[in-house]
Simulated scan of single mutants.
Amino acid sequence: MGSTCLSACGAELSGTADTAAACWHPSPNFGPRRDGLTPSLIVIHYTAMHSASAALQRLCDPSVEVSAHYLIGAEGHCWQMVAEDQRAWHAGAGQWCGFDDINSRSIGIELDNRGDHPFAEPQMVTLERLMKDIMSRWSISAQGVIGHSDMAPGRKIDPGPRFDWPRLACQGLADLRSCDEGPMDPTFELFRRMAHRVGFTSPVEDEALLSAVRLRYRPWARGSLAADDFIPLGPSSSRS
């Protein structure tokens, strides 16, 4: 698929990749970051499409008006479609740590995956290498690495329950939350307060918030709010 580097899709847009790991394949779907913002977040997505080629075509289609900075195929090939200092159109409506316009604050990485199967090893290796490069270049902390579902609970579920967040956390590439005991009497009021403290600030219903936190930290969990749902959110300020 290396020939796609010279595709007619946005080929008139000059530029080079920000990282040696990527093939420059420009998309016309981008604009300047607003209010002088620079990247402080990395948002991870899955494509939910049948192939990387199909995703690449869509992310470069001006009629669709979506894009991301990077796309990583299952075999580990990486394309860059939007320069890191520009605003790609990948996150949409949502909020993280009380801030909106996530597009202006983030770098978006799409992973070739339908959401119903594990992420390929070559793809994860490329992702880790790319993230280290981006995080170093923009001084992005592990706390600044989030999933699409983190900032858009109830609207998005990617990168989904099959994504290996613990793998990234063990390398310092994602937030490793503390393992504190949950409260004896779990309530959504306390859950929302603790989730808000770690970044889940989108104004959504209780169940949407619970689903988003579970997707990130406990994707196997089912049923009603439980004490274990509080564990990855760190120590609570009050105990029942």
Score class of each variant (00 low, 15 high):
64 V>F: 03
83 A>C: 04
158 D>F: 06
100 D>S: 15
196 H>D: 15
225 L>P: 05
108 G>D: 05
2 G>K: 12
117 H>G: 10
23 C>V: 01
167 R>P: 05
37 L>A: 15
98 G>P: 05
118 P>R: 09
15 G>L: 12
132 K>G: 06
212 A>E: 11
163 F>S: 04
205 E>G: 14
33 R>Y: 03
18 D>Y: 08
25 H>R: 14
138 W>F: 15
235 P>R: 14
106 S>G: 05
160 G>R: 04
172 G>Y: 09
224 S>G: 03
211 S>M: 13
42 I>S: 00
158 D>H: 09
188 F>G: 08
136 S>Q: 13
153 P>H: 11
19 T>H: 13
185 D>Y: 10
62 P>C: 10
38 T>F: 03
221 A>F: 03
144 G>W: 01
198 V>D: 11
200 F>Q: 08
201 T>C: 13
208 A>N: 11
127 L>N: 07
137 R>K: 15
216 R>L: 01
81 M>A: 09
55 A>T: 03
237 S>D: 15
205 E>I: 06
212 A>S: 15
170 C>D: 15
31 G>D: 14
6 L>E: 10
17 A>E: 07
11 A>L: 14
226 A>F: 07
42 I>P: 00
80 Q>E: 15
55 A>G: 10
131 M>V: 02
5 C>S: 12
154 G>K: 03
51 S>P: 02
152 A>Q: 10
125 V>I: 15
43 V>P: 02
125 V>D: 15
29 N>T: 04
98 G>K: 09
54 A>Q: 12
58 R>Q: 03
178 S>V: 06
217 Y>Q: 04
65 E>W: 00
206 D>C: 09
135 M>S: 01
234 G>T: 11
235 P>F: 08
181 E>M: 10
118 P>M: 06
214 R>W: 09
68 A>W: 00
105 R>K: 12
222 R>D: 04
118 P>S: 12
84 E>R: 08
90 H>R: 04
106 S>E: 01
148 H>L: 00
125 V>N: 13
76 G>Q: 03
97 C>K: 08
82 V>R: 05
185 D>I: 09
137 R>W: 00
202 S>H: 12
180 D>S: 14
6 L>R: 09
132 K>T: 01
153 P>Q: 08
94 G>M: 05
15 G>R: 13
132 K>Q: 12
215 L>R: 13
229 D>N: 10
110 E>D: 07
132 K>N: 00
219 P>N: 05
191 F>L: 12
116 D>M: 07
168 L>S: 00
156 K>H: 02
44 I>V: 07
215 L>W: 08
188 F>I: 09
67 S>L: 09
194 M>P: 04
22 A>I: 05
33 R>D: 05
67 S>R: 04
213 V>M: 09
235 P>L: 10
218 R>F: 03
127 L>W: 02
81 M>T: 07
229 D>G: 11
99 F>S: 14
54 A>I: 03
147 G>L: 01
190 L>C: 06
61 D>S: 01
93 A>T: 13
118 P>G: 08
23 C>I: 04
205 E>A: 14
63 S>Y: 00
208 A>R: 08
112 D>E: 01
2 G>S: 03
41 L>G: 00
9 C>V: 04
41 L>N: 06
51 S>C: 00
